[in-house]
Design a protein around this nucleic acid. Sequence first.
DNA 1: GTAATACCTAAACCTAACTTTAGGTCAAGC
DNA 2: GCTTGACCTAAAGTTAGGTTTAGGTATTAC
Lengths: 145, 145
Amino acid sequence: MYTIGQVSEMFGLPISTLRYYDKEGLFPNIERTSGIRKFSDVEIEAIRIIECLKNSGMEIKDIKKFMQWCAEGSSTYLKRKELFEKRQKAVEEEITQMQKTLDMLRFKCWYYEQAIKDGNEDHLNEMLPNHLPSDIQKLYNHAHE
Amino acid sequence: MYTIGQVSEMFGLPISTLRYYDKEGLFPNIERTSGIRKFSDVEIEAIRIIECLKNSGMEIKDIKKFMQWCAEGSSTYLKRKELFEKRQKAVEEEITQMQKTLDMLRFKCWYYEQAIKDGNEDHLNEMLPNHLPSDIQKLYNHAHE
DNA sequence: GTAATACCTAAACCTAACTTTAGGTCAAGC
DNA sequence: GCTTGACCTAAAGTTAGGTTTAGGTATTAC
């Protein structure tokens, strides 16, 4: 059992954030003794999951739904699994999108490196879009999809 | 030369967003005839870059800085290149983080699949954290770093 | 007994990135 | 001549995810 201050230390999260999560229903069964929150292993694991789901781009209200399902027991296994599968698909798509963004960024880095060498963009603009080195062409194509 | 309505159509962006971008200084040299914005190829390419930089997680005020550098000419090539390099590094790190998130999600999917088969989490909890199938162990480790 | 700490709540505030609203101009079609 | 549609501005409103503030309780340290 931990106090809010200890949990704040453990995770490097502000106390205000933990209270906010509680207010938003992310710890549905948290115990209290004379008003003071007692964080058990259940809440500690919950915070770990919250951090991960937040990283995956999930909204607080959906995380709340998940935490409530956990509190409801084995009848919600399927819902929980489906929620993670949905998130997994979303993150996979996001990574794909980020790879394209990365190609665009790499192209731009190359572009300005050339511009610095040349002193201007004239040569580059003559080359565009059809006379680029083939390794750069691919980046350009991704960048301009 | 395009009107704001045409550009809105082209990119699927609301007119209000384009006006907002203009207000925020993202089209530093946009032309107007009797008050009405005329979007040239310069602004069209700007929007393409804005979309990409937004995807990469860059804030509007930093995108504005870039657009201003573009308007300033060849003396800012180095700054522009450095900006893209910084963004590139940030996106690479984000992808790495997302891969870890993905491992956690895959672990959770596996976990609930087992829980559904077993009808409860008892067997799973006995297995944790040191007696998982080796292919799952790796996901678990990533998930709990 | 009083001062410092650690906890509590409700409510106001904050920021980014838009969106909506209210009110106005101007050209084209009927 | 008047209505419709496309443009304009300034300012207020919106949402998510917190943070800050103001005021209160309860325990420990001197």
